[in-house]
């Protein structure tokens, strides 16, 4: 994409995000796990955790963040969350209860921890889905299926849509890849293993 301007990153935003992102992620996990005794739960915590990735995308560029993310983690979050919920629900049947009767598990305080585990499943699903929704919408404007790549969409607003190249080599990242901070930032340890 020759029309793409080199992405000029803002040091202020990068520094702020680097400072804030770990706290937001921690807080998202806290909200997910602490839903039993205070306001919170999987839905809220998942959205807050997903906001971390959105933050990183704004600080370091969407394509870079997308490359940095392990897609398998994303798929694992989305599918694994629903699967975890379903497994807990069905597992109760194995222990002689009914569907979703978490009280029958042979662990201390099965009700409380069963509910927490279900909340974790919800949180995983919501975090994964919101993250992928964001990237799907923000990345690549897909060309109409069955036509060649560029002709379908260069009629209007290429300046507005050029973030949307969907080519796998992601040339945008090559332009900025030389700058140290851009690469370093998303490689920071937080956010990788959100499950």
């Amino acid at each position: 994409m020759s029309s793409r301007r080199p992405y000029v990153e803002s040091p202020v935003i990068m520094a702020t995000v680097r400072l804030v992102a770990p706290f937001v992620l921690t807080y998202g996990i806290f909200v997910t796990l602490h839903g039993a005794s205070s306001p919170g739960g999987g839905f809220q915590g998942g959205v807050i955790a997903a906001a971390v990735i959105i933050m990183l995308s704004f600080a370091y560029g969407i394509d870079l963040t997308w490359e940095w993310i392990d897609k398998r983690v994303l798929v694992g979050l989305v599918g694994g969350g629903v699967a975890l919920f379903g497994a807990i629900a069905l597992g109760a049947v194995l222990f002689g209860g009914q569907f979703l009767e978490v009280g029958v598990y042979p662990i201390p305080e099965p009700d409380k921890y069963g509910i927490e585990l279900v909340e974790v499943g919800i949180g995983m699903t919501v975090a994964g889905v919101v993250t992928s929704l964001f990237f799907t919408l923000a990345r690549g404007a897909m060309p109409p299926v069955g036509e060649d790549g560029e002709s379908g969409r260069d009629d209007e607003g290429t300046a507005a849509t050029d973030g949307g190249t969907f080519s796998s080599e992601a040339p945008g990242s090559e332009e900025t890849g030389g700058d140290g901070p851009v690469r370093d930032g998303p490689d920071a340890p937080e956010g990788g293993d959100r499950a």
């Binding site: 839903g35 039993a36 005794s37 205070s38 306001p39 919170g40 739960g41 989305v78 599918g79 969350g81 629903v82 919920f85 379903g86 629900a89 569907f99 979703l100 978490v102 009280g103 305080e109 009700d111 409380k112 509910i115 279900v118 909340e119 499943g121 919800i122 699903t125 919501v126 994964g128 889905v129 992928s132 929704l133």
Partner: peptide, 30 residues
Amino acid sequence: THVENVVTAVLVAYRGFDTFGEATVVFAAG
């Protein structure tokens, strides 16, 4: 349920099937 927040208790324990459906809707929207 040994959960103090009644909203969470209703969400997961009493109406867990409902919530399972909601999670599936979110999944399906993705």
